[in-house]
Design a protein around this nucleic acid. Structure first.
Lengths: 123, 123, 123, 123
DNA sequence: GTGGTCTAGACCACC
DNA sequence: GTGGTCTAGACCACG
């Protein structure tokens, strides 16, 4: 369901934010949930090799955004509507692609070179 | 040489690392070349709206990598060798492209969709 | 273990160095011994009325010298060996006494006057 | 008149404060002045191996305290009265001796050991 | 609760 | 003017 290899630290940014992004991407991609159920804090913290508190913080932020719902002693569930999902997906893609395009343009690459690099690194 | 519009904060990561990356990309992209003066700590900090110490931290790391040279009371200069430039360029590109590919794969995109997005956002 | 009244600022020198010296003197004087816990960064900073970071800097230097040991999330402990203690004691005494002798000689005192002053101020 | 060997940096404190103390001690000890004349900023900076600006700062502080008088393009003269001299001498001695006594007591020395050390290091 | 890091502002020494 | 350091406060990750 979740693989550690996918959890690449965007080095520098706080771990709880990396987890936040990771979970969001998993939700959008449909791979992090079994039905509507999120992995438990403890399971995810073990999987990612971080402190449970850190996962807890990410989950709390997700709850603040209204994407999931948590109750003490119970599992966490995804509560977002399809309309929200579209928006979250859009935010994520925009964030990712804009960051890269800006970076590649700064080093002077052309679009063709960028596409070639993308092909080369895709797998 | 440096324009504020180009300095987009990759939200989340430390400011000094953003500055570090920004300067490196400027070097690789040829906007900053060997022997050239860097903007002073104060000048750049004012331009970017951050504390002079934050710029200094980035400059010190650049100096640790041997890319620039700083001395008290004097300006800072770019001092990297051509052999280093290739390596820096490679590091930057790999870092940027790997980050994007990982993120896009996490949300479940195919390579074709990714290329299309890249074309769309390139400008 | 540490009392605020004992912490007299040697005006002029950096606070973190004063703390460094104070802890070293406590170790040499036997008030702080091997295996003992140090006061936490926050506790000592509150006691001395300085910023936690200032205490941390002193602690980090002590760790660099191998006199204490710190780990994130855990307390800091004294870890110096007996062989180190002799050396630290020697450094401290030499530093203190040389500083005084130099200062008194600069103002033109004779050794007899200096001894008399020492007796007078000892309490 | 002045010897570099006497200028021992009380490491850590600002250089201009060390110079300030050094000149005060020289005045009290009667060794720094020729008649009432202070060494020029340039002469003293060369002698001590520091920047003229740093000596300048120390001289300005001495002037602020009313101990010397400076005029552009002219030498600096000592202007303090005998009553002031007594006070300055007292301040200096008290500062020096109190600092040492506190330090030695912290390391657990007895008065007898302190006197012995003083004798041993006097020359 | 612990220690570790990032950002900030003021000061220092030098040119 | 320049770069370097010290103190400060808030935040992070961990136990």
């Amino acid at each position: 369901m979740l693989s550690f290899a996918e959890f690449v630290q965007e080095e520098g940014s706080p771990i709880y934010q990396q987890i936040l992004l990771y979970v969001k991407r998993g939700i959008v991609g449909g791979r992090i949930v079994q039905g509507q159920e999120l992995p438990s804090r403890r399971a995810l913290s073990t999987l990612l090799g971080v402190n449970p508190n850190t996962v807890q913080k990410a989950y709390r932020l997700l709850e603040d955004e209204g994407l999931i719902s948590s109750h003490a002693g119970a599992k966490s569930y995804i509560t977002l509507q399809d309309s929200q999902l579209q928006q979250v997906a859009h935010e994520l893609l925009e964030r990712d692609i804009k960051g890269l395009v800006g970076a590649l343009q700064q080093v002077g690459l052309t679009k063709e070179m960028a596409v070639e690099l993308l092909n080369q690194y895709w797998e």
